[in-house]
């Protein structure tokens, strides 16, 4: 690809760029220096140090957990809506029968390893029995700890 310009035009442009080029670099450098020295422009979070004050937003989708009162009772009726809503089969709701022969929650098994934290289970729950907590430091060295049973007690039915 070649341009249709004369040699004189070419050298005029060349000389002009010799002046404007370094000037443009200086302009860019001044922005860099401004950001380097101005403390108001620092946006970095000092993460491990600010751990105590760092709070996630209310809607943050962390690990799934069951809403329980002080005695450990939950609202789950083992209807299985969350299990059906889950895109990657991270939830297994195992129902059992209580002494009156009614279907209640036995075990609420949650596979955290395959969970993508999309929040569809919470949305699908008709009883508001589950929520996503604000936990974000979820790394672990023990893969077995990622398979968890969320309920402490059997459901009330």
């Amino acid at each position: 690809m070649q341009e249709n310009i004369t040699l004189i035009q070419y050298f005029k442009r060349y000389l002009k760029r010799c002046i404007t080029g370094p000037w443009s670099l200086m302009c860019g450098l001044s922005v860099s220096l401004k950001y380097f020295f101005d403390p108001r422009r620092i946006v970095t979070e000092q993460y491990p140090e600010n751990r105590k004050t760092l709070k996630m937003h209310e809607r943050f989708r962390g690990r799934l957990e069951m809403i329980e009162d002080q005695d450990g009772n939950n609202l789950c009726t083992a209807c299985g809506m969350c299990e059906r809503a889950c895109p990657n089969a991270s939830i297994n709701v195992l129902a059992t029968k209580n002494i009156a022969g009614k279907k209640v929650l036995g075990r609420y098994i949650y596979h955290f390893a395959s969970c993508t934290q999309c929040g569809l289970c919470v949305e699908a729950c008709p009883f508001g029995a589950i929520r996503m907590n604000q936990e974000f430091e979820v790394a672990t060295t023990d893969p077995n700890s990622l398979e968890m049973i969320l309920n402490k007690k059997e459901g009330q039915g």
Binding site: R17, T20, G21, P22, S24, L25, C27, G28, V31, S32, K34, Y35
Partner: peptide
């Protein structure tokens, strides 16, 4: 404004 000054006229 800063960013355009930084990059838009940069000779490189």
């Amino acid at each position: 404004r800063d960013y355009e000054r930084f990059l838009s006229k940069n000779i490189i």
